[in-house]
């Protein structure tokens, strides 16, 4: 068993932070949405792809000690809610730092990293993580 098309399908979003902007109210959504929760049917067909800058600040974070199998080499890792400059908030790791360096409000920027891999023979799943600016 393995994940394949589900990973491939999301690659523009996970590789390049391609968000969806509502053509009706201008709100920006990441993760992308096909319908704007504010405009509802008025947004149908008006959601447009847009690339985000990958810059933002830490809204909140945790240092994860009880980690899923894919993250054992990184224990403990910092997982944060990051508010991007364009508006949306996402969940991602903050890497290449000691947990003690991380604080609410700190500026971060996105980097391209391996997130998971499907066993030893399956595909490698890449995506965004963040580093302190």
């Amino acid at each position: 068993m393995g994940e394949l098309s589900s990973v491939w399908r999301e690659s523009s979003h996970r590789y390049r932070l391609v968000a969806h902007g509502c053509g009706n109210c201008k709100a920006v959504y990441f993760p992308p949405r096909d319908i704007c929760p504010k405009c509802h049917r008025d947004s149908i067909g008006k959601m447009k792809e847009m690339e985000l800058s990958g810059r933002g600040k830490i809204e909140s974070f945790t240092v994860v000690h009880d980690v899923p199998p894919a993250f054992i080499r990184q224990r403990p890792y910092v997982l944060a809610l990051i508010r991007l400059d364009e508006g949306p908030t996402l969940t991602a790791q903050v890497v290449d730092c000691d947990p003690s360096e991380v604080a609410l409000g700190k500026r971060v920027r996105s980097v391209f990293r391996r997130v998971r891999e499907d066993g030893k023979s399956g595909i490698i799943q890449y995506g965004y993580k963040f580093v302190l600016e």
Binding site: R73, Q74, V95, D96, V111, F112, R113, R114, V115, I124, Y126, K129
Partner: peptide, 9 residues
Amino acid sequence: PSPDEDVAT
């Protein structure tokens, strides 16, 4: 390289 880095990243 950290464990999440490789030639692609």
